[in-house]
Simulated assay, not measured.
Amino acid sequence: MSAGIVVAGASSCYTTVAVEGFPLPYMPTCPPVWADVGVSGAGVHIARVQRRLGCDVRLCTVVGGDAAGAVIRADLVRDGLFGPGVVLSGASSSGVVLVGRDGRRMGFPHLTPVDGFAYPFGVLRERARGAELLVLTTARFVRPLVAPAAALGVPIAVDLHLIADPDDAYARPWLEHARIVFCSHERLRDPRAWPAALFARYGQCEMAGIGLGAGGALLALRDGTLVRVAAAPPRRVVNTSGAGDALFATFLAEWVRGGDPVAALQCAVLHAGWKIGHRLPAAVSLTAERLAALRAAAPPATSAGRWDR
């Protein structure tokens, strides 16, 4: 193990159900094309990816003492993620994902059981000792931890997912303290204009990444550099759930280890593309060696420019 990374976020028990497509017509009974149960959520997915890539990952999450919690705990133990940062609560988060034949997904995350949980900052502080990076997801129980975590002197990274406004009220703690900010393009009016708005408002932000879905990903650096990496889709897209988490997690792991943001973004796009070719993308991850071999065999198209011109 190498780079020490703390990941704070949700761990949920998800049921994934394959459907013919969207919109879904009403029927009283409809046997699915396929169905499966697994443990996902941004926290555990990011941690699982980074541990598989060789990082020393310390997961800070909330797990209930219910049946869903038993499934989650078993998965965390199996993946080597169960540790002092896993805090017991009354109930676990869960969810349902519907996946169409084209891979599009519709998620129903039920995070209410953990949203109001007061995660002890002292636990996060202890897990952060000697860490190189704090990955603080946008889970509600993580939000009160962001400002005090910034005082620990460890860089913070966040994926803000479907953000549209650089002054978003809910996202403000992360925007004010994160050095690395990722998000999806889906609600941005102009993805190329987003980095300029972000860098102008938040002086500590050093990197801004944008997942473009089928278009790949963008990465902007404060010095004006803009890199675009084309998508690397599998032969068949099965399930796009968690593609953004995979992109974000892989970028961070590769960047912390190697220090090259361009190579890290290439690896991130390749890993996300590989994952969406599987039924349960959050359950499968490449090792650093296999990912490096994939990049060597099929390097994704990459272009460079400027966001400040």
Rank of each mutant, 00 (worst) to 15 (best):
R189C: 07
R189H: 12
R189Y: 05
R189A: 14
D190S: 14
D190N: 14
P191V: 03
R192S: 06
A193N: 09
A193R: 15
A193H: 10
A193I: 06
W194Y: 11
W194D: 07
A196G: 15
A196F: 10
A197F: 06
A197T: 04
A197V: 04
L198N: 09
F199R: 14
R201L: 07
Y202E: 03
Y202H: 15
Y202G: 09
Y202K: 14
G203T: 14
G203L: 12
G203W: 08
Q204E: 12
Q204C: 15
Q204F: 12
Q204L: 12
Q204V: 14
C205P: 04
C205Y: 08
M207E: 03
M207L: 15
M207V: 11
A208T: 14
A208R: 13
A208P: 05
G209R: 12
I210A: 04
L212N: 11
G213V: 11
A214R: 15
A214H: 14
A214S: 15
G215L: 07
A217Q: 08
A217P: 08
L218V: 09
L219F: 12
L219G: 06
L221R: 15
R222T: 05
R222W: 07
D223Q: 13
G224P: 14
G224V: 11
T225I: 04
L226W: 02
L226C: 09
R228N: 00
V229W: 03
V229Q: 01
V229A: 01
V229I: 05
V229T: 01
A232M: 05
A232Y: 05
A232K: 08
A232L: 03
A232S: 14
P233G: 01
P233M: 02
P233N: 03
P234R: 08
R235A: 06
R236Q: 08
R236A: 09
V237S: 07
V238Y: 00
V238N: 04
N239H: 05
T240Y: 00
T240S: 12
G242W: 04
G242P: 12
G242R: 09
A243W: 02
A243H: 08
A243Y: 05
A243C: 10
G244V: 07
D245W: 09
D245L: 11
D245S: 14
L247T: 05
L247K: 12
A249I: 01
T250C: 05
L252H: 01
A253L: 01
A253S: 02
E254R: 15
W255M: 04
W255T: 03
W255A: 01
W255N: 02
V256D: 00
V256L: 06
R257I: 00
R257G: 00
R257T: 03
